[in-house]
Every structure is written in structure tokens, then in C-alpha cells.
């Protein structure tokens, strides 16, 4: 493997609801023995990472995935000509589908990625999670998809209040009686359309695990975390690594059954009987991925190694009781930087 790598990273939105780009870059820069040049990929002229010159060596604007995979690829070809990319690390949920589709064409250009298969990506979607749990033998709170309000009374017989009323992709409300279910159904339908998901509400504490699968069923890394402080947007502001084998076991079971490839974040709830429920799978590393790095598991670097076919031993330990505490910082930027990225698309 080369000692110098050029890696493109997106998700530079290091705002109060941060993307994973900057933490991933920090992880890659920590990689001992490998000199990494970082190319920022940006969708917005004001992504803070664009202006963090100590972490991001050069940045390029790229078109939104909504402009089509072919246009994104054209732009990446141009960037590749300038920078000779070795690897691309996409970090936005909205771009993953497109990058998974583009992966073989990027590979043919000599650019590696380390992403889940399209079917792995699709089957863990929120509205299919209950099915997913049944398929892989994982505990997922009971949920059902409904297309018409007339189904509500019959369907509710399978649930105990409270239930969570969710949109296909966004929005969730907790309903304590049938009238509230009706009202949230209408609310979500008006905003996001059908179908609506009804899910059994589970009382308990929420836990998160950052993990890396090698596509063959092996768990290369897994570090659990409990949020200690949450912003008014529901994002972790502080969190601590845990020693809880049950969380790791559930993660390993999931990765082993699904043969997940790439980084992921798993959200779990433990109820009062100590029973664990899987509530969400994010198909990428989370914004708190630098905590596992600092605790001893550099999963972003391991993902790149795996992509290059290197033999990677699974991490076996990590520091328990490591905390992250996020902070915000006013980076002072010259107008000429903003002018460059917004007029020529490069910085």
C-alpha cells in the first residue's frame, strides 16, 4: 500500500448539526505511517470545513446528487485529473445512494470506496426495519406500515400505547391514544405523504454504536457510546464510551448476519427488562466517529485499508470512559476564500 494517499471527503458541514466529514478527516490525519492529502467535496459555499485549511488541503464544489449521477461523475473526473484521488469518503445520507451506484465506475477510474452494497443500504431503511429485524433475527420494536386511516383501529390491536407515528423518511410523534394517532397520521400525511409507520414505543435508555464491517460478516471495530448531553436539535453534544458487552454482541450479530460492508452507526434502546431493541441503522460513520478513534479504534483508516485489500485485524479493545465534548468556534475567514469557492468552485 502507498505511503501517500489522496482522499476526497464530503460532509464538511461542521455546524451545530454536524456532518461526519471533519471527524473522519481528523481520523485519517491521525493515521500513523501514512501521509494523507485531503480533498474536500462541498455542496455549499458556507460549509465550515471548506475554511479549515489545517485539515482540508484543497476543496471543490460538486453538483447535488439530484442533478444526476452522470453530472457528479463528470465533476469527479475533473477533480481526479487535478488531484489523482485514491479514495472517496462520502458522508451525507443524501449522496450515499448515488455513490453506491457510481462505485464500480469510480473503481474503474482507480478511485476506491468502501460502501455497503445497494441491497444492504436499501433493506435497512426506516420503513423496512421491522422486516429487517425478522430477516436477521434482531429485536426491532414492532412496527407496521399503513396506507389508509381506516386501517388504524384494526392495526392498533397489535400495539400497546404509547405508539410512535412516523413518516416514511422523516418525522416521528409519540401518541398516547387513538385520537392522537389520527391527528399525527393527518399531520404527517399532509407533510410527507403515505405510507405512515406505526411503531411500538419502547421506554428505556438510548445507546449508540459506531462500527465497521468487512463485508464478509466480520466486525472490524465497534465502540458503544451513551449521549451525555443533547442539543435542542436532538444531537449529541457530549458522550462517553461504555463497557457493555450486550451492545457489542448485538452489533456483531447484525454485521455477521447482514455481511455489512463499511462504516455504520447503530441506535439501540434498552428497556426496563434489560432487553435491547434495534431502532435505527445509519449507513455511514456518525459525526462522533472521532471518539472511537481517540479510544483506540481508528475505523475510518481501517475502512480505507480494507478497501485496498489490506489484511486488517479486528480491534479488540478500546478505552472505556473516554468523553467527547463538542464545542463551537468562530473561524475567521477572508472574503477572498468565499469568493474563490463561489465563483470558480475551488478553494
Amino acid at each position: 500500500m502507498k505511503k501517500q494517499l489522496t482522499i476526497a471527503v464530503s460532509g464538511l458541514n461542521n455546524t451545530d448539526n454536524p456532518g461526519p466529514g471533519i471527524p473522519v478527516i481528523r481520523a485519517l490525519k491521525d493515521w500513523k505511517g501514512i501521509d494523507v492529502r485531503i480533498i474536500g467535496i462541498s455542496y455549499d459555499h458556507l460549509e465550515p470545513g471548506l475554511y479549515m485549511h489545517d485539515l482540508v488541503d484543497k476543496s471543490y464544489s460538486v453538483p447535488f446528487p439530484s442533478e444526476g449521477a452522470d453530472n457528479l461523475l463528470l465533476r469527479l473526473e475533473y477533480i481526479h485529473e487535478q488531484e489523482q484521488l485514491d479514495f472517496i469518503f462520502p458522508n451525507f445520507d443524501a449522496e450515499l445512494f448515488t455513490f453506491i451506484k457510481l462505485a464500480p465506475r469510480l473503481e474503474a477510474m482507480g478511485i476506491k470506496t468502501y460502501l455497503p452494497e445497494l441491497e444492504q443500504f436499501e433493506e435497512r431503511q426506516k420503513y423496512r426495519l421491522y422486516e429487517y429485524g425478522e430477516k436477521y433475527g434482531l429485536n426491532v420494536p414492532k412496527s407496521t406500515t399503513i396506507h389508509s386511516i381506516s386501517e388504524v383501529p384494526e392495526v392498533l390491536k397489535q400495539f400497546e400505547f404509547p405508539v410512535v407515528v412516523k413518516g416514511k423518511f422523516y418525522d416521528a410523534y409519540i401518541a398516547y391514544n387513538q385520537e392522537q394517532v389520527y391527528s399525527y397520521f393527518h399531520k404527517i400525511q399532509a407533510k410527507w405523504g403515505l405510507p405512515i409507520i406505526l411503531q411500538q414505543f419502547v421506554y428505556g435508555n438510548e445507546y449508540n454504536v459506531t462500527a465497521l464491517g468487512d463485508g464478509k460478516g466480520n466486525t472490524i471495530g465497534a465502540v458503544p457510546m451513551r449521549k451525555k448531553f443533547i442539543t435542542d436539535k436532538g444531537k449529541a453534544w457530549a458522550g462517553v464510551t461504555l463497557d457493555e458487552p450486550a451492545l457489542i454482541d448485538m452489533t456483531k450479530k447484525l454485521i455477521s448476519a447482514s455481511k455489512w460492508r463499511g462504516g455504520m452507526e447503530i441506535e439501540l434502546i434498552k428497556d426496563k427488562n434489560n432487553k435491547l431493541f434495534l431502532v435505527e441503522i445509519n449507513p455511514r460513520f456518525p459525526a462522533w466517529v472521532y471518539l472511537p478513534v481517540a479510544a483506540g479504534q481508528n475505523m475510518p483508516a481501517a475502512a480505507v485499508k480494507l478497501a485496498f485489500g489490506e489484511n486488517v485485524n479486528a480491534f479488540t479493545t478500546y478505552d472505556v470512559g473516554k468523553l467527547f465534548v463538542r464545542y463551537s468556534f468562530d473561524n475567521i475567514v477572508d472574503l477572498s476564500d468565499f469568493q474563490k469557492i463561489s465563483t470558480i468552485g475551488e478553494l
Binding site: L335, Q339, T343
Partner: peptide, 16 residues
């Protein structure tokens, strides 16, 4: 500017 960047110091808006 030569590359068509306009900044309005009175409002903080910029244009292309």
C-alpha cells in the same frame, strides 16, 4: 472582481 464576484458591503450580500 474580474471573475464576476460582487460584494455589497452595506448588506453583506454577494452576487455572481
Amino acid at each position: 472582481s474580474d471573475n464576476g464576484f460582487v460584494f455589497d458591503p452595506a448588506t453583506g450580500d454577494s452576487y455572481s
